[in-house]
């Protein structure tokens, strides 16, 4: 139990919380980057490799399109169906192989990204699917390449939906990061677990909880705001 009457109690608390928050930002930030990169690609491919999709025949081969589509679908479904706490444990050997350890903020990136990618991919898929087919045809009639259609039509028109998906994903990742933190991934989850739970300090626990609530609010509002500003429908 921490001594609340220690003159340095609040300064220590602030220090610890800030350090935890910094680690959380780092972990969530990097895993978010990976999530956006791979999730966007996976989401776009999920829609476009369907029959009659823009990439139904990558390199002229429908078979390849089918394989990419099926494999992605299965992988994303698996990723989405494993509870995060189990995924985290399952990934320990892989994480160790990749980062050398499964403890610490950098190691925490691995399970976070792997949980985030399929989550975001489904949201991207929904957003891309909502882009009217007619827009693709219009661009084709202008002589656009598939890449142009992908970037300037499909992704560009889905941007408001993607912004909402992004904020939902950030919120999810913050939640997961607390879970990884509790088992050695550092960050706010680690603070809550070690100080709040193991050394029973309600102040630490509350501080973490309030900070998490604020972060979630912030990112969700940011996403909503961005989606509204970016949508001209």
């Amino acid at each position: 139990m921490i001594d609340r009457n220690d003159p340095y109690f609040w300064a220590d608390l602030l220090d610890t919380i800030l350090k935890g928050a910094g680690e959380t930002f780092y972990t969530v930030g990097v895993s978010l980057l990976l999530t956006v990169l791979f999730g966007l690609a996976a989401g776009v491919l999920l829609v476009t490799t369907e029959a009659h999709g823009l990439l139904a025949r990558p390199f002229g081969s429908r078979a390849l399109g089918v394989v990419v589509n099926r494999v992605l679908d299965v992988v994303v479904n698996i990723g989405r169906s494993i509870p995060f706490i189990i995924l985290m444990i399952l990934l320990i050997p892989f994480t160790r192989l990749l980062v050398g350890s499964f403890i610490g903020p950098t190691a925490a990136i691995v399970p976070l990204a792997i949980a985030g990618i399929p989550f975001f991919a489904r949201l991207v898929e929904i957003g891309i699917r909502e882009v009217p087919k007619g827009l693709i045809e219009a661009a084709q009639s202008l002589g656009a390449t598939r890449w142009t259609i992908l970037t300037k039509v499909l992704v560009a028109e889905a941007v408001p939906a993607l912004a909402l998906g992004l904020s939902t994903t950030v919120v999810g990742l913050i939640g997961y990061s607390a879970m990884v933190g509790a088992v050695g991934g550092g960050g706010l989850g680690d603070v809550a677990f070690r100080y709040g739970y193991q050394r029973y300090s309600p102040e630490y626990m509350f501080a973490v909880v309030i900070l998490l609530i604020l972060l979630v609010q912030l990112f969700q509002s940011l996403g909503n705001f961005a989606a509204r500003r970016l949508s001209h429908r």
């Binding site: 007619g134 827009l135 202008l142 002589g143 656009a144 408001p160 001209h232 429908r233």
Partner: peptide
């Protein structure tokens, strides 16, 4: 070649098909 040929053929549509974000 097809894309080049399409530059020479404009098309308009019943539902306009404009990009809402532009």
């Amino acid at each position: 070649d097809l894309r080049q040929a399409r530059h020479d053929i404009g098309m308009i549509f019943q539902h306009f098909n404009l990009l809402s974000g532009r």
